[in-house]
């Protein structure tokens, strides 16, 4: 039974220092009355997709936030904003913070245009997102640094058994279901991503090929 008034943050963890900091920011967020917040840490996941599937199946929360341990949410009203978008837009499957309006044909997200990824806009205490005034971008795919959902759709752990392309795959799976993928227009940044420069992209090419085979063949 889905709990309509619950938000679950699901985080694959392999670094306690980052995870504890990530949790600190989640606990700092304002929570709407009547909404329950759960934080689910997933340790020793075989892959991102399998970890997220495990977490998804173990939480009854209607709203799930799949995020990296090195992302710190600095929009204090993040939970309000996510719920308000989902509640009036039943056709939105995923909300991300960084996205690609048109994914390049080679599957490399950061080669094409991206939205939401513009550091330098200092969050201020007065800032509140307004979905009518500010709106959102429609995108083909979002970055896995944070992905919020309102429906439980399985992650493709059968194809993506590593740490790459699980996010783009999920975005495409969502769109296959006829749902939309969006990124809110963030007039002040919603997050800080302390990703360790030059990531472990050793297997990126392998999963890129799998991704292209599965989703981009007819593009």
């Amino acid at each position: 039974m889905v709990n309509e008034n619950k938000v679950c943050f699901l985080i694959c963890v392999n670094d306690n220092l980052f995870f504890e900091e990530c949790v600190r920011y989640i606990q700092w967020l304002e929570v709407p009355d009547g909404v329950e917040v759960e934080i689910l840490e997933i340790r020793e996941a075989a892959s991102m997709a399998s970890g997220y599937n495990e977490g998804m199946n173990s939480s009854d929360a209607k709203y799930k936030i799949y995020m990296h341990q090195d992302v710190f949410i600095v929009n204090r009203y993040f939970i309000y904003d996510i719920i308000s978008i989902f509640k009036v837009n039943k056709d939105i499957g995923v909300i991300g913070l960084v996205g690609s309006p048109k994914l390049p044909l080679n599957g490399i997200m950061w080669q094409g245009d991206r939205v939401g990824d513009f550091p330098g806009q200092i969050p201020c205490e007065e800032y509140r997102y307004d979905k009518i005034r500010d709106g959102w971008w429609e995108v083909e795919a979002v970055d896995g640094l944070l992905m919020a959902t309102q429906y439980d759709i399985p992650w493709r752990e059968d194809l993506f058994d590593g740490w790459d392309f699980y996010d783009l795959s999920y975005s495409f799976e969502i769109r296959r279901k006829g749902l939309r993928v969006i990124v809110p227009v963030q007039k002040h940044t919603w997050f800080i991503h302390d990703d360790k420069e030059v990531l472990a992209l050793w297997n990126h090419n392998k999963y890129r090929k799998i991704f292209l085979d599965e989703y981009m063949k007819n593009s």
């Binding site: 490399i108 050793w202 297997n203």
Partner: peptide, 14 residues
């Protein structure tokens, strides 16, 4: 000139 080169290299040089 392909941007994906970096990933091909990473894979082979890991």
């Amino acid at each position: 000139e392909d941007t994906s080169n970096i990933f091909i290299k990473l894979e082979k040089e890991s």
